[in-house]
Design a protein around this nucleic acid. Structure first.
Length: 740
DNA sequence: TTGTTTATTCTTTTT
DNA sequence: GAATAAACAA
């Protein structure tokens, strides 16, 4: 098949099985690759791009490839360059969001935007929804802003504009929702801002409503490729369809069993109905798994089996059978973390690399105990996700200032920093500014910068003047194209932001200062690497990076992350923890069968990350919301045939741990384990007899009632309300009560 | 107007 | 337990 005139072709550099090869070399038209977990999906996609570039002479700049993360995009591009030895800088590869942002910056004018529009993140969105709902005098209780935002997002993901909803039959909530949606969109437009969803939908509207533009992009993108197609939402589907409908060269890869983003609008139907939508599509099915042992695959296959809504397929592995999956039962979440800490420590002592190990959990909140346990044992680890760098207050404040320089119409950013650091601009002053701005049809910052604006009856005039002079100067610096990090530094001193933090003198403020200096250097090095790009593109970049983008696999660090985050990754050893009803599946999805199925896919995704060893853990009880909740093993474990795993109960677990076959270098860990066991004893014997509501008599303060208890053992604190009305927080182990 | 304390809800998961 | 909102004091 391979032309003899293309000697060192891409195909000779990548090992592909028959189906993979067929998919890569299939010439034109719509193509769908069903790629089960670990079947070499990325390899196929990469080879396909390389094949197009090298064998089909398509310029990299004429390929549109949507990946799930920017990190995947970067790696794929590098790999393609390796394979073809052709520079792929022009390649359109990235997440849907960044690709759309790229298009929209070029075409902004056509949809009434300037190229320097702001991108609103979840925080910004929420604060705008809150403001909008408040303006419409909606009650926060009956109309929770989060629900409003979620519903708006749902409309947008399905590409339904407020216009299309007007006059629709709707209940009270929907009526109000539509009003909010409409006002929210207007407000975004007025501020020259787009939220994440807008990046896609506006792109769709742009192409749908501008024939010339559409044709231009259809001609530009000779091939459209989409990774993780099962996680695309309807607006992304429209986008892809618009781009590909002329030449029909669309190549998508995905696995319906790994669809775990339904909650943010992804529609599995996109992949299941691909054949119908793109008539004559060629379908490929990758079922040979190269990643996991047969034992792990059997377990994963059995786990996903009960799902009704899926395309038929069955993964098989040519690898050895391997060890049986282990299901561990623990006393509580502490025990779980502790024992897994031990197990990891033992494994590392036995020569396993920390980087080959992953701890996967359903919710970010579960990470804390594992972090503690790993830290205690001095095992290096990395937590992927959680509160990211760019979500910290101080960083967001700095970015808000920078954003305002790029886009002075950004009222959300302006509202954020108006009184940060505090300069006496309170609710009153804010109100007057907003009102003035509305009357003159300008943004808050524009109003503020106008010296003619009158402020009657405001105490914070001084603060407003301060802010005005700061901004005039910063804007001047920006206009002169001073280095962005210098502008940031100016801001920090002029506004007194740094002084504010320094005066505070706390540990927290010190770390804030550190973060800010990290931001400054990040900005400086970015400016050096991208001299031709503006501040706007720095801000875009940081708002579109995901947690996983920043993660780098390192040899010795144990990886902790959510199950969602783990998609697409693989590790030799995987622990899936907190495998309990209420957590996996989440309690909130109990009443919805479709959501339960998605949760089950989550277990499937997690399980198929493991190459050699898979441990599933659950605990009898667990701290949640500050109190102990009983736990039961996940319902997902029930239908799995018992012969597919090894069940280890508490007593059996103790046996394993007491086996005298430990390597020598384990003293520190053993010592720690002893002390944590002591904590347990302490908890059960010393302090368990306190309970909320209990009446006590203190030797100094007299009669009182325990109103709150927190912590374990020596860490246990209690809040006691005394008869004189005072409340005192004290450590349980030191509290002196009289008998009675 | 600011900072404190208290009450309430809250968490899934993320571009 | 933690973050946020409301309530309250200064």
């Amino acid at each position: 098949m391979i032309s003899p005139f293309a000697p060192a072709s891409v195909l000779s550099k990548v090992i592909l099985n028959n189906v993979q090869l067929e998919a890569v070399t299939h010439p034109e038209g719509p193509q769908l690759v069903f790629a089960g977990a670990g079947t070499g999906k990325t390899r196929v996609l990469t080879a396909k791009i390389a094949y197009l570039v090298e064998n089909k002479n398509i310029l990299p700049g004429h390929i549109f490839a949507a990946t799930f993360t920017n990190k995947a995009a970067r790696e794929m591009q590098r790999r393609v360059e390796d394979l073809t030895a052709i520079s792929c800088t022009g390649l359109w590869i990235g997440t849907f969001h960044s690709l759309c942002a790229r298009i929209l910056r070029r075409e902004a004018g056509a949809i009434g935007y300037t190229p320097s529009f702001s991108i609103f993140d979840a925080d910004d969105q929420l604060s705008l929804v809150k403001k909008t709902a408040k303006d419409l005098k909606l009650d926060e209780r009956t109309m929770p802003p989060r629900l409003l935002l979620h519903s708006i997002s749902k409309y947008k993901n399905a590409c339904i504009s407020p216009r299309e909803l007007e006059g629709k039959q709707a209940n009270f909530f929907e009526q109000e929702l539509i009003k909010v949606y409409s006002a929210y969109q207007k407000s975004l437009q007025r501020q020259q801002a787009m939220d994440f969803d807008d990046l896609i939908t506006n792109c769709v509207y742009l192409l749908r409503d501008n024939d010339e533009t559409l044709q231009r992009y259809q001609r530009l993108f000779k091939f459209v490729l989409v990774d993780e197609y099962q996680d695309t939402n309807r607006s992304q589907f429209y986008l892809v369809k618009l781009l590909a409908q002329a030449h029909r060269n669309i190549f998508v890869v995905g696995d319906d069993d790994q669809s775990i983003y339904g909650w943010r609008g992804a529609e599995v139907e996109n992949i299941l109905s691909f054949e119908k939508v793109f008539q004559g599509a060629k379908i490929f099915k990758l079922e040979q798994n190269y990643r996991s042992t047969q034992a792990i695959l059997n377990f994963a296959n059995a786990a996903i089996e009960p799902n009704n809504c899926r395309a038929a397929k069955r993964l098989w592995s040519s690898r050895e059978t391997g060890d049986r999956v282990v299901v561990m039962r623990y006393r509580d979440d502490r025990h779980e973390a502790d024992a897994i800490g031990d197990s990891i420590s033992r494994a590392i002592g036995g020569g396993v690399k920390g980087g080959d190990i992953a701890i996967l959990f359903r919710t970010n909140a579960q990470s804390r105990l594992f972090e503690e346990c790993l830290r205690k044992r001095r095992i290096p680890y990395v937590l992927v996700g959680g509160t990211g760098f760019y979500e910290r207050k101080e960083i967001k404040d700095c970015c808000a200032y920078l954003r305002l320089l790029v886009n002075p119409k950004d009222d959300v950013s302006c509202g954020r920093i108006l009184n940060v650091p505090s300069r006496g601009i309170g609710d009153k002053a804010r109100e007057i500014l907003v009102e003035q701005a509305g009357r003159t049809d300008r943004s808050i910052l524009e109003t503020l910068l106008d010296e003619r604006t009158e402020y009657t009856g405001i105490r914070g005039v001084k603060g407003i003047e301060d802010l005005r002079s700061v901004f005039s100067l910063l804007m001047e610096l920006n206009a002169r194209h001073e280095p962005p990090q210098e502008i940031l530094k100016e801001m920090l001193t002029l506004t007194g932001y740094l002084d504010m933090l320094e005066d505070e003198g706390s540990e927290e403020s010190a770390s804030r200062i550190e973060n800010i200096s990290e931001l400054t250097s990040a900005l400086a090095s970015w400016a050096q690497e991208n001299p031709e790009k503006g501040l706007a593109s720095f801000l875009e970049e940081i708002s579109l990076v995901s947690d996983i983008d920043k993660w780098n696999k390192s040899e010795d660090t144990v990886n902790c992350m959510t199950l969602h985050c783990a998609k697409g990754l693989e590790f030799k050893t995987v622990y899936i923890v907190g495998c309990e009803d209420g957590i996996l599946p989440s309690r909130q999805n109990f009443d919805d069968e479709a959501k339960i199925e998605e949760e089950r896919r989550l277990l499937y995704v997690g399980s198929t990350r493991a190459m050699e060893s898979l441990v599933i853990a659950w605990a009898d009880q667990r701290w949640r919301f500050g109190s102990i909740m009983p736990g039961a093993p996940s319902r997902f474990l029930r239908p799995i045939p018992v012969e597919l795993y090894h069940f280890s109960d508490l007593s059996a677990e103790v046996d394993i741990r007491e086996k005298p076959t430990r390597p020598a270098a384990r003293e520190p860990a053993a010592a720690i384990r002893r002390s944590s066991a002591a904590d347990f004893d302490d908890f059960s014997q010393e302090t368990v007899h306190y309970r909320v509501g209990q009446h006590v008599v203190h030797h100094l303060y007299g009669q009182g009632e325990i109103v709150n208890l927190s912590g374990f053992g020596v860490d246990m604190h209690m809040t006691v309300k005394f008869s004189d009305g005072s409340r005192r927080r004290m450590m349980a182990q030191f509290a002196k009560f009289e008998q009675g």
